[in-house]
Nucleic acid binder design. Sequence first.
RNA 1: GCGCCUGUAGCUCAGUAGGAUAGAGCAACUGCCUUCUAAGCAGUGGGUCAGGGGUUCGAAUCCCUUCAGGCGCGCCA
Length: 585
Amino acid sequence: MKQEVINVVRNAIESLQKQWGLETISDIEVEIPRNETLGDVAATVAMSLAKTLNKPPRKIAEDIVNAIKTMIIPPLANGGLGGVTAEEGEGRLGIFEKIEIAGPGFINFTFKKEYFYKNLEKLLEEEHSSFRTNIGQRRKVQVEFVSANPTGPLHIGHGRGSAVGNALSNLLQAAGFDVQREYYINDAGLQVKLLGQSVYAKYCEICMDKYPYSISKNAYPFPEDGYKGDYIYKLAEELEKKYQGKLWAKDFDEISREVIDFSYQKMLELITKDLKDFGIAFDRWQSEKELYEKGKVESSLKTLSDKNFLYEKDGAMWVASTRFGDDKDRVVVKKDGEYTYFASDIAYHKDKLDRGFDTIINIWGADHHGYIPRIKSVIEAFGLPKEKFKVILIQMVTLLRHGEPVQMSKRAGEFITLREVIDEVGADTAKFIFLTRRADSHLEFDIEVAKEQSAENPVFYVQYAFARISSIFRQAIEKRVQGFEGSRVQEIDLSFLKENEEISIVKKLLQYPIVFEGAVLSFEPHRITYYLQELARLFHSYYNKHRVISEDKTLTAARLCLCKAVQIVLEEGLKILGVSAPERM
RNA sequence: GCGCCUGUAGCUCAGUAGGAUAGAGCAACUGCCUUCUAAGCAGUGGGUCAGGGGUUCGAAUCCCUUCAGGCGCGCCA
């Protein structure tokens, strides 16, 4: 819809270029007017040209419109854009019903109804494939998200990150990118050790109860900053089930490998299950430990060292990240010879870029924002293009229950898990709520409101539209209505769709690719969420006002086509959000 | 103190890379089910876009500044 206008305006300006003495023509910007009565597409060029041409914008707009009117608008079929040719249309406006100048210098284009019928037909012929754009051109993109430490269950914040990461991946995939979803497992270092110690302490307690005859054996002290919560106890129980008393009363270092590996692997199983029930799957799981074992940490530091970005100070090894804009240099090898977390992250990001991705997108909690400059600087130090590295920060989720904030303390083991959210409000609702906000806006999630209002929740509003259409088709089949069948769209006279509501819906449908493209380019899946609500609103309204199935066979056939198209777009959008499209509700 | 994010209707949030009269949901009120699902529809009320300056044909949007909230600023991960 936009493209047709851009083409026409560009041609018009080109014909005026010499007369105006204009050297270059910048990109033509058009927009969908807020108010539908103004037109379908508006061009703002006249106003932006006003300064360079030193002419009043309305005069420029007039010149452009006059130029358009003296042109034959080329048959748009040539451009593969559909529409009707100038010959088919009346007068010289081709696919346009009217072109008007309004306000300070807007040029408003209104399409002929035939244009909409033609495009509706095209949508129905191609169905979902009509949305398979190729913005991505098969470029390789990796989206890394969640990557929660395997030291505890996923909480609601991870839920938000996973919903966004998943939807973004779907979005990019639909746009023709080659997408890989990856989860980075922090299975090396202090945190998993602490998990192991916490579990071991509980395990020893269980053993003391279970094997009272060996009372001489001691308990293992619970680590000071150990992980708390029921799940630790459950892990300990499982540990006991597997090893019975065999690991009891040993020196922790002696049995640490078994305990630690068992604990975090069990944790990962739980995390995977939670994600699965949330409808999210990963293509690849990257272990931090493996980066060490394969020598990638060592080798990437060596590379930095060769490039002179590494230096020693106070007995530690530092990366000169300030050279590329970081606040301060960062330690990678501590005085005691241990690597910092940053060390493996350097290796990890280098590894990702080495794997040949055109873009790597990290979805991080906003509390990690201070981490971005150091990663960027390292990427530059490696001589890799830093534009390939993108971070989407997900702002904090404040969890409420009846309007009261729920205190979350990981240390005390008190937090609402993703599991609880899924069980209480359902995966679809939770995902939809997570995707109704911009990533960088704080989110208040009232679990009671989400539950109580479940009947009036926006997600149901959209799904309901889909279900209603499904119901109409069930009726149509039952009544043996001669209606829509994929192969016969061309035989149905869509021009029976004369109602304003019907035209509005078709316009909205044709806007989907525009919204979609915007969402892709800005990495903002939430735009799809809002679009779907608008489309559902139009449909519900239409449904209440007009009957689809009636005595009038030709009208019914045309209306069934419209319904089908709405259904296709709703399904397409919901699929990107990772939300189901139920045929019955 | 420095850095990042945010501030839009009573509440929760959108606002399409600067555009026309700033929008939705919830909450409140009034109507609509013998016909395709009322998880719906139609309508009413509700705003100093945090405050102040600036940039220009034009600002919720860009710049400066003040205020308020959140989050970072470890040889933790």
